[in-house]
Write a protein that binds this DNA or RNA. Structure first.
Length: 381
DNA sequence: TAACAGTCAATATT
DNA sequence: AATATTGACTGTTA
């Protein structure tokens, strides 16, 4: 990191960290809100080099504690009754959903790309000046005022309303016609997700053939299955990052937390990252332990019907996790895992353990792939 | 070209 | 109403 910083300085000038960018290539129109492009208002601390673009600042930024930053931001937002939407759109230039995700599962700084670090630098900058909170609150008030005004006029005019604009105000709940034209969002049924998760456990990187099989068996488009695997892999990764940070937090607090139970948070000040740590499951965790994860048998999974087990049932636990290459490692033999670098030690928590196993298999896949090449070069896991 | 990283934006949940 | 979740899309990487 520091070398990167040095290189930037030594170059004296950042060549072209990508031109200003056309921005918003996504869908054509973006709700008003944020300025079409460029640096955003960027609440710089007037004092410091306020002439730098965020990209430059990101490039020179020292390592930031992403977890700590999001924690602080969440605190400030809730304390001042500020929502994610406003904060995201005016400060970060991101949508509400993205903000929610970012605040809930920040990736560690060293795992972020230049682009990915940007929101964190913006948040840090925002936090650095308490005045920013006031400014945001002002914005909120103005928004509310504008909203009230609009509502009023539309009430009194009851019909014409927004006709003022060149009718660009399409969409928004209106035209039942457009709703049909736009392809509906795919929503995977719980059974389908289960099947996919099982398939993932067995093989994080399914072959095209396997993907085709899954797709036809679950009656899904191939692209949907592919997307699901991409998304699941990266989200699983993020889960692990977060769990690691929280676990580390517990240790340094000298607090032992055997497992679930959100006891902590005793009087004392600062951080207690967990309110209900482990248990979470955060939707990625597969809670259907049980159900011998043994081999993904294609047949049983028919999205339609399938009156298999209902949710909640089978809380038993202790299912021999499915045949990952590491399924042989059991809790009963802790010494076995001692040969693995501490960060890879298998946790006893069933859910977390499965994720770790999946991750290890994931790593193995990459190692094998890398090994098959001549120049191993960088092995970073 | 496959896999990723970041996001969006439609839905689901709270 | 505010947040959380998540399939899909765009741009990047190797």
């Amino acid at each position: 990191l520091s070398s990167a910083e040095e290189s930037v300085k030594s170059l004296g000038e950042t060549p072209s960290l990508q031109a200003p960018r056309a921005e918003q290539p996504q869908s054509s129109e973006r709700s008003e809100g944020s300025p079409p492009s460029t640096p955003l208002p960027l609440p710089l601390t007037s004092s410091s080099h306020s002439s730098l673009s965020i990209q430059e600042m990101v490039a020179m930024s020292p390592e930031l504690d992403t977890y700590g930053i999001t924690k602080k931001v969440k605190e400030v937002l809730t304390d001042n009754n500020l929502g994610q939407r406003l904060f995201g759109e005016s400060i970060l230039g991101l949508t509400q959903g993205s903000v929610s995700d970012l605040l809930a599962r920040p990736k560690p700084w060293h795992k972020l790309s230049l682009k990915g670090r940007e929101p964190f630098v913006r948040m840090q900058l925002w936090l650095s000046d308490p005045q920013n909170v006031e400014k945001l609150m002002d914005m909120k008030r103005m928004e509310k005022k504008a909203y009230m005004k609009r509502r009023h006029s539309s009430l009194s005019d009851c019909q014409p309303v927004d006709s003022g604009l060149q009718g660009v105000e399409f969409s928004r709940g209106g035209s039942p016609l457009h709703q049909q034209l736009k392809k509906p969002r795919v929503v995977l049924a719980p059974e389908e997700k289960e099947a996919l998760k099982r398939a993932y456990q067995e093989k994080p990187y399914p072959s095209p053939k396997t993907i085709e099989e899954l797709a036809s068996q679950l009656n899904l488009k191939t692209s949907t299955v592919i997307n699901w695997f991409h998304n699941y892999r990266s989200r699983i990764r993020r889960e692990l990052f977060l769990e690691e940070v929280q676990a580390a937090g517990l240790v340094e607090e000298g607090r032992l937390v055997k497992s679930a139970e959100g006891n902590c948070c005793d009087g004392a000040e600062s951080d207690c990252p967990i309110g209900k740590s482990a248990s979470q499951e955060s939707s990625l965790g597969d809670d259907s332990n049980t159900k011998s994860t043994l081999a993904y048998s294609p047949a049983p999974y028919k999205p339609t019907t399938s009156a298999t087990q209902g949710p909640g049932i089978n809380r038993s636990h202790a299912s021999p996790l499915g045949l990952g290459l590491f399924s042989c490692l059991s809790d009963s033999n802790p010494s076995a895992s001692s040969t693995i670098s501490n960060s890879a030690r298998l946790p006893r928590d069933s859910s977390l353990r499965k994720k770790k196993v999946a991750n290890l298999n994931n790593i193995i896949h990459r190692l094998e792939k890398a090994a098959s090449k001549e120049e191993p070069s960088e092995w970073e896991f």
